[in-house]
């Protein structure tokens, strides 16, 4: 059957695969024939994703890794195959009002959201673990490159930094035919948006601000990742795609 979005036989690494968007990306990629290496920290939830992967389990791997542990990261990479696609999805949400945003708090969110995905990708490139014609995807956000919210300055800063980094990488890696793109989701239904700082009532009110009166579903972000991973987007690099049900239009 004709399917230009096919990922048949492509080796794809997905971080943050134990939850939310990363989990959905891993599962959807497997349904399109990709061979997955999924990364997370929580063994039980990572294994749940593993069990849900489509296709022969022998084609898939799972790896428990704290991505801010750079020594282990470098060590683990040696064991990994050469990938056609890398999706950097691991990330955390934070709520810090600016006047309480200490250097320490800022360092933590930058470590997880910015430095880890960048270092992982750098090492993969350096060790030649990303194939020619490969595709790298970062999970940025509308928060940062486009807008921001109360308590979100540091998170936004990490996501804007990622977008900028993706563009620079895209320029440098183009001669290797490796493409680098990023996704900018609006609020998406995952555990990340349900935190101690916000009540369910506040979330319901926020949802009303979306033209479609709802938040995104993880698979709606996954399909966009698939666009960047598959051969339909071979001339797309350094690009960011907003997926927010029209939120940033109004």
């Amino acid at each position: 059957m004709y399917n230009p979005f096919s990922l048949e036989g492509k080796k794809v690494l997905v971080t943050g695969a134990s939850s939310g968007i990363g989990k959905s990306i891993a599962i959807e990629c497997s349904k399109l024939g990709a061979h997955l290496t999924i990364v997370g920290r929580n063994q039980e939830r990572l294994n749940e994703t593993f069990i849900s992967l489509d296709g022969d389990k022998n084609n898939h791997n799972q790896l428990l890794l704290e991505l801010t542990d750079y020594e282990r990261l470098e060590f683990s990479i040696k064991e990994l195959p050469v990938f056609d696609g890398v999706v950097n999805c691991a990330g955390i949400g934070t709520t810090n009002l600016f006047q309480f945003l200490t250097r320490e708090k800022m360092q933590h969110v930058f470590d997880v959201n910015f430095f880890s995905p960048v270092e992982l990708t750098r090492l993969l490139i350096k060790k030649k673990k990303i194939a020619k014609n490969g595709s790298v995807v970062f999970l940025s956000s509308i928060d940062g490159p486009i807008n921001s919210h109360i308590g979100n300055s540091s998170y936004s800063a990490t996501k804007a930094a990622l977008a900028a980094m993706a563009k620079g990488m895209a320029v440098e890696l183009a001669p290797k035919n490796i493409r680098v793109n990023y996704l900018m989701p609006g609020q998406t239904e995952t555990p990340l948006i349900h935190n101690e700082f916000i009540t369910e009532d506040q979330l319901a009110l926020d949802m009303e601000k979306y033209p479609m009166k709802r938040y995104g579903r993880p698979e709606e972000i996954a399909y966009a990742a698939i666009y960047f991973l598959s051969d339909v987007s071979t001339f797309t690099t350094g690009a960011g795609l907003v997926i927010d049900g029209g939120f940033t239009l109004i």
Partner: peptide, 14 residues
């Protein structure tokens, strides 16, 4: 307001 509530949460944390 919700902003003051966040300030109080952050103050208590600190």
């Amino acid at each position: 307001s919700s902003l003051i509530a966040l300030s109080i949460i952050a103050m208590v944390d600190e």
